[in-house]
Simulated scan of single mutants.
Amino acid sequence: MLDIIQHDSIHELRLARKPVNALDPALVRTLRSAVEAAPNQDARALVLSGAPGLFSAGLDVPTLLQLDRDAFRVFWNDFFGLCAALARSPIPIVAAITGHAPAGGAVLSIMCDYRIMARGTYRIGLNEVQVGLSVPECIQAALRRLVGTYRAERMMVAGAMLDSEQADAIGLVDELADVDAVVPRAVAWLSELLKFPPRAMGETRRLARADLAAVFADPRALPVEDFLDGWFAPEAQQVLSALVARLKAKG
């Protein structure tokens, strides 16, 4: 489900839930725990990666549709907790986007310090509206700080999925690499960062990311119930159920 690979003091958290690294309750909980524990396990930086060609397909909709409201609330609190762990991490994190990263996959990447995406036909974006869901404000805020207010609005309202070149052009990702070079490049980028005096780099990073950290500072303020209302709304349930039916028909 999650492989932890050590590159000296840089730890790679590799999503390994076949076939598409979909985010179910167990994977989200496991990844959150790994991110939170890493600084106490001698990690000075993290790489978050996926399988070649597919970073993460986002939420595991077939599994999540089976949850009642109470169980889904637990999951969504864990998902927001994972976002908070990434956004507020005391050590730098690079998203090694090794392939497609729709919806939840894109969300994880925008919480990180830096994003390196596989070059090619791979796509990334917050396409929630296409499946009947709204994008929570805390996630919108994270996207706005990367690409700007108006561009973020246009992307999210349209549920746009961008190819890697488009994502790089607007700053949704920071650089591109061949798919087999994404993780090595992430490790190399972090290795250069870790050469700087640690106190100076760490404090500057903390101040620079204070706006993002503040978004997730108070778990009670996060819009969990609002998202639950949207998830269980008839429109969303109808669209999501139709999506699951199409996936089953494809085999």
Rank of each mutant, 00 (worst) to 15 (best):
residue 204 T to Q: 11
residue 38 A to P: 11
residue 40 N to A: 15
residue 223 P to D: 03
residue 45 A to F: 08
residue 88 R to P: 14
residue 104 G to P: 07
residue 60 D to L: 05
residue 62 P to V: 04
residue 5 I to R: 15
residue 12 E to F: 10
residue 191 S to Q: 03
residue 4 I to P: 02
residue 93 I to W: 02
residue 207 L to W: 08
residue 21 N to I: 00
residue 72 F to I: 08
residue 159 G to S: 11
residue 80 F to V: 02
residue 211 D to F: 05
residue 232 F to I: 05
residue 102 P to M: 15
residue 144 R to I: 05
residue 92 P to R: 10
residue 148 G to W: 01
residue 141 A to I: 04
residue 56 S to N: 13
residue 16 A to F: 14
residue 235 E to L: 07
residue 226 D to N: 11
residue 152 A to E: 02
residue 72 F to M: 11
residue 166 Q to D: 14
residue 240 L to W: 01
residue 190 L to Y: 06
residue 209 R to P: 11
residue 28 V to T: 12
residue 150 Y to V: 14
residue 88 R to V: 10
residue 184 P to H: 03
residue 150 Y to W: 11
residue 136 P to E: 00
residue 125 G to N: 06
residue 42 D to T: 13
residue 161 M to H: 07
residue 8 D to E: 10
residue 180 D to N: 10
residue 232 F to Q: 03
residue 141 A to S: 11
residue 27 L to H: 10
residue 75 F to N: 12
residue 45 A to P: 09
residue 20 V to E: 12
residue 144 R to D: 07
residue 209 R to T: 09
residue 136 P to V: 08
residue 26 A to Y: 04
residue 93 I to P: 00
residue 127 N to A: 13
residue 56 S to W: 13
residue 72 F to P: 08
residue 224 V to M: 08
residue 119 R to I: 07
residue 240 L to R: 01
residue 49 S to T: 04
residue 27 L to F: 10
residue 28 V to Q: 06
residue 50 G to I: 15
residue 152 A to D: 04
residue 247 L to Y: 07
residue 228 L to N: 03
